[in-house]
Design a protein around this nucleic acid. Structure first.
Lengths: 315, 315
DNA sequence: GTCATTTAATAACTTTTTCTTATTTAAAAC
DNA sequence: GTTTTAAATAAGAAAAAGTTATTAAATGAC
């Protein structure tokens, strides 16, 4: 019995066909067939029923695979543990990042991170706050980058990374375009383009001004993509809210369209979340450190800033 | 990382030298060296310190090996589990048997067992009651064959196998040789050869007659070997107690020396013990069944027999 | 029912891995 | 310093795992 054989058998139980297992493992189909045959031969039990087209685990197979899964999970944990012992910044790290941040933050630090820690394999997935928290708890993600503070029951470690201002992006055809700073209370909300509901950036925007989403517009565009809203403002006119990082990548021709919000600087707090028990602490710390290096330094401090609340409460 | 590598590494941690690991695994010394090198290479940590002659695990090595041991134990349990699922009488079974029984019982059934269940690998170890019970609880033995009833706190399954009479073996030079049945109370205890103290057969003998061991003899021979006592009786004279099974193998020339004890047939109860949770139940049942087949049929019933108590109480 | 399609099993062969023997190196014992 | 013992290394042999090509069997369309 080898770990490789168990791995193939588990995959066959999940995927239900030899050919798919072969594809997912990057080997040929007979390789899988032979290994599973060898395993059944050695164990003396039939794990899979091939009488029909779809390969199904037998009753014995189901019972065996359940325990085999536990063994394989433990073997993965042992490898992780060895990486911890080596005290190197090495191994795989899966992070979830909110969509209003990810397209601007990731390009900013990914190259530097890779240069500094070439042995770290970072997997980034865009997801909304709720799914990130769920993922952290189920082990899908080792950590998440999102807007805080949030109310959560979990045993979570929260590390603030930076504070990101809110800006307005105003069409040059709009009446407010001439002003340097815009008083939100004076705004006509029907001109404002917003992100899809449930997006935390959107939630915070409604906290800044008392907008009712999709109130009385005749054209609704539901998206989590801030760049798309910017293009709509450019081509169709109107106003949208932008997070600070997104403004860094705006070409100088459009720079005039970015407007401050009148009053104390409104910011959202961006933090790294992970389980307190997470063993990949060194990897997470490395990512935090590189992000802080790559983000404009004025975003690091929280002086003269008003942190906008999130509406997030874990169900 | 493979289970084989972990196995080699664990053995190296235990045995402290590559050459001993190689011997115990039945491979050459470079095979072990290469596998351990590959493991360290893959994990990225040094597991063993070779600076000195004796190979010692590093601090990382100790931490890693501890978890690796758990993994390997689980993998063994998974293989056991597969054997259970197969419902075949197959796999390894370790039994402890008391020394007053083992040399007469084992030859009786071992051949039949092997014929009937060729896939069973039986490991038998001679040990005293106390060590057998300890071994069953620590997992060294999957079961034990010993004299019951015993008082034990453990969660033990007790299966009576047969009832074995006590006989006397009397030298032809002894005054009692002429009698067919011997009244124990009339015996001179200074003529009696006994087994080592702590042996359960011996304990039961002292329950039958009120002998005080090593009372006033001028020659003491401490042994757990009943055959040795028999030879002493033959060459030097005197009397010894014999369990029934040992009398089956006595040649006809000495048959006359075997004497019944006067009164109701005194027997010891021989049982198979195992943890109630033991997964190798089918193997244990197979052994019980074969033993019952191989033992003379008159030993199976308990009618007209007086079961002699053991003194055993678990500490 | 026949035929086309899909997938698993088998066969023959290749590559990779693991192990072996022989030898070198290094540490401990004398 | 010499001998002894054990680990590391090198090179080749054996075993294991993988490959392609082909066959067999099952499903679905007609």
């Amino acid at each position: 019995m080898t770990l490789k054989q168990l791995n193939y058998a588990l995959a066959l139980g999940r995927l239900g066909s030899y050919i798919n297992v072969a594809k997912s493992m990057g080997v040929s189909q007979p390789a899988v067939t032979l290994q599973i045959q060898a395993l059944e031969e050695e164990l003396g039990i039939i794990l899979f029923d091939r009488s029909t087209k779809s390969v199904e685990p037998t009753l014995n197979g189901i019972a065996f695979l359940e325990k085999a899964q536990a063994l394989l999970t433990e073997s993965k944990q042992l490898e992780d543990f060895a990486i911890q012992l080596s005290e190197e910044v090495r191994g795989e790290l899966c992070l979830g990042i909110i969509p209003s941040l990810s397209p601007f933050l990731v390009p900013l630090f990914i190259d530097e991170l890779n240069k500094k820690y070439p042995k770290m394999k970072l997997k980034i997935q865009e997801a909304i706050t709720e799914d990130i928290l769920e993922g952290i708890k189920t082990g899908t993600y080792h950590g998440g980058i999102l807007s805080t503070p949030i109310i959560s029951k979990g045993n979570l470690e929260v590390k603030p990374l930076f504070y990101e201002r809110f800006y307005l992006y105003v069409s040059d055809k709009h009446q407010l375009y001439s002003q340097e700073e815009i008083d939100i209370s004076s705004m006509d909300y029907s001109d404002v383009w917003l992100l899809k509901e449930g997006n935390c950036f959107m939630d915070q925007v409604t906290n800044i001004c008392s907008i009712q989403p999709n109130q009385n517009e005749n054209f609704v565009y539901e998206s989590n993509n801030i760049d798309a809203l910017r293009r709509i403002v450019e081509y169709k006119g109107g106003i949208t809210f932008l997070p600070e990082l997104s403004t860094l990548m705006i070409p100088s021709e459009q720079e005039e369209m970015i407007k401050d919000i009148k009053g104390k600087k409104k910011v959202r707090e961006i933090s790294m979340l992970s389980l307190k028990t997470e063993v990949r602490r060194n990897l997470i710390n490395a990512v935090c450190e590189v992000i802080k290096e790559c983000v404009p330094s004025q975003m690091l401090g929280r002086e003269d800033k008003e942190i906008v609340k999130t509406n997030f409460v874990e169900k």
